[in-house]
Amino acid sequence: MIEVDALSVCFGRTEAVKSVSFRVARGESFGLVGESGSGKSTVLRAVSGLNPHWTGRMSIGGELLAPRRSKAFHQRVQMVFQDPYGSLHPRQTVDRLLSEPLLVHHMDNVERRIMRALNEVALPASVRFRYPHQLSGGQRQRVAIARALMPEPHVLLLDEPTSALDVSVQAEVLNLLADLQQARGLTYVLVSHNLAVVAHVCSRIGVMQSGELVELLSADDLRAGRTHHPHTASLRELSIELEEPETARDH
């Protein structure tokens, strides 16, 4: 579905992404982990078309990607951002936010599609005419996911979709993403600094460090500690030590 070959992104003189290659099959979830500045979000933004200054070769669904994307591309590939406070226009109601993609792509049945999307992300119909500031963080992220689903995409790019949320809301959103993937056969690319989240959602994981993809491994290998690169090992160790009380106490 997604093929990325020797992708490099430069900001001025600094190379933020250095020749990154990976493949994602249809219906699969691929995760990119790394610390801030590792270039993981930059990869995602290059794939989405937000950053046109890249070199290399990328294709989605067999179609080679140019720096400028077509309307059809944006219909097939959508993105969910990290900050649900910043990714929704502050002066637009949920109704307007959700109908915008439909208007851009000249899609019919606006009314029905909006109600269906709200239903799909488990939001009550009463939020339809609310503004983002009247919603909780979790509700906003659901609206953002609903908006991404409006053009009926095949691929969802998820940029730290739960890192701004409370842990209990994070669990709800992660479950929702799993349900949506099953119902729609979506392909996910998830970027996160949280190893546990990535391992939960994705079957295959790429580890990034200072712009390079240092290791590609399966989630099961990561859980079992079958890592090859020292950076992967140290990230894993830290995550287990700090975030999992049971295991930490057992040691």
């Binding site: 479950n175 546990a196 391992a199 939960h200 099961d220 859980r223 287990i240």
Partner: peptide, 27 residues
């Protein structure tokens, strides 16, 4: 790990864990 209140327990349980695999997270 011996927390008694359901809220405290919930906060711990709804975290995805790296050490073992879950299909769904408890809500």
């Amino acid at each position: 790990t011996r927390a008694r209140h359901p809220y405290t327990r919930g906060l711990l349980e709804c975290l995805p864990a790296l050490s073992h695999r879950q299909t769904r997270l408890p809500v």
